[in-house]
Simulated assay, not measured.
Amino acid sequence: MKIDAFCHLIPPAYAERFFAIDDSPALKNLQERTRNIPALTDLDVRFRQMDEFGDYRQIINLTAPAVEDVGPPERTAEMARIANDGLAQLVADHPDRFAGFCAAVSLDDPERATEEARYAFDELGAVGVQVYCHVHGRPMDDPRLDVFWEYVASREKVIQVHPNRNSSWADYPTEERSKFEIWWTLGWEYDLATFMARMVFSGAFEKWPGIKILMHHAGAMIPHFAGRVGPGWDQLGARTPPEQREDITGYPLTRRPIDYFQQFYVDTAMFGAGDALGTSIRFFGTDRVLFASDSPYDPEKGPGYIRATIANLEHDVDLSDAEREAVYRGNATALFGL
């Protein structure tokens, strides 16, 4: 069996509400894009694609954008509830297809998001939550969010992390927008790496020892810059002038920064980049890597990245049979409590 640990979907009731929103110009492009990916909403299409891979199941979550971006806080809280009820129903109706779901939460209101997570865990059986790398540009180590992190960690549920910058994050300070979709190709990986760094230096792994964070795209930039993350950050402060010391003052860590980075879990959604995937697996270790494809956001709109990731794991990455089994199924089973 293969358990695909990071797949996107739009439940029917959520889709009806989402596509009806007409007061947000920022959403228009995302609405158009998702309309053009049938497997996000059409289960017949999705199941035909999944059949190619034999004994194969998915852990599903709500597709982008972040719930916080679909409107004012009252609407986003309502949309999170609609999404979670819909995701839970899909898992209940199709247990042979969907191994579980990670709940949507609106972090506009951390207390309300915590209650939504509680509802999703206790009433709906969610195996985790999905969050994004920032909330309207606010960092995720904002102390306002501590109540949410502490609660999810106490429940030992998985926190899936997805990037979310857009073209308004310019490539240079002198420009107004990012060009050539750099905000996506490179920016999303920077988003993920920045989230990881801020969580490490805020002391997340020491304050909440039970926290389980699953990073999308194999940990993004971090494993590929291990020299800077390791011996580079061992010299934290060497590059900072005295008048900026507050910029490097964080939680008093008791270990090297790189040790905390290796406590994240990561998925294999590298879109067929076998060498890069191998680097990530060596950095995090086979016990912290979960098979995932990011389906259905490939050029074929469904099966392409699944197929490419399987090919990477079968032919491009040096794994023993036991290690490959752990990545395909065992790690997800243990981490999500399936």
Rank of each mutant, 00 (worst) to 15 (best):
R46T: 12
K179C: 02
E123P: 00
L43P: 04
T279S: 13
R48G: 12
G125D: 05
Q89Y: 01
A80L: 11
T254I: 00
P209E: 01
V91E: 06
T194L: 12
I82A: 09
R228H: 08
N312D: 15
Y328V: 07
V105R: 10
L277R: 09
D85N: 14
D191W: 06
P299N: 05
A276G: 05
F121K: 11
G71L: 11
D146S: 11
I21C: 06
Y56R: 09
Q262D: 02
A66M: 10
P242F: 13
G86V: 10
L313H: 01
W183V: 05
W183P: 01
I281T: 01
A292H: 06
F180A: 14
Y260L: 03
V152A: 09
R155D: 03
K157M: 09
L145K: 03
E175Q: 15
V67K: 02
F201T: 13
D259Q: 06
E32V: 11
W208L: 06
D44L: 01
R97G: 03
P257A: 01
M221H: 04
I60A: 07
G285V: 08
D247R: 13
G337I: 07
I222C: 01
F98Q: 11
F261N: 04
G278F: 03
P72R: 14
K2N: 04
R155I: 07
D267S: 03
P173H: 11
G187K: 11
P25Q: 10
G232M: 08
N29E: 14
F53Q: 07
E175D: 13
V67R: 05
L9V: 05
D171K: 00
S295H: 03
A153Y: 09
T76C: 12
V147P: 04
G272F: 14
I310P: 07
D316Q: 09
I182M: 12
R155F: 03
L290P: 08
F6C: 05
F195Y: 12
D109L: 06
G250F: 15
A332M: 07
G227D: 09
G274E: 12
Q58N: 09
A15S: 14
F205Q: 08
V200C: 07
V105Q: 13
T279F: 05
P143I: 04
E32Y: 03
H8D: 08
P296T: 10
D122P: 00
M221Q: 08
V91P: 10
A308F: 02
P72E: 15
Q262V: 03
A292Q: 09
A273K: 12
G100P: 09
A326D: 13
L107I: 12
I59F: 00
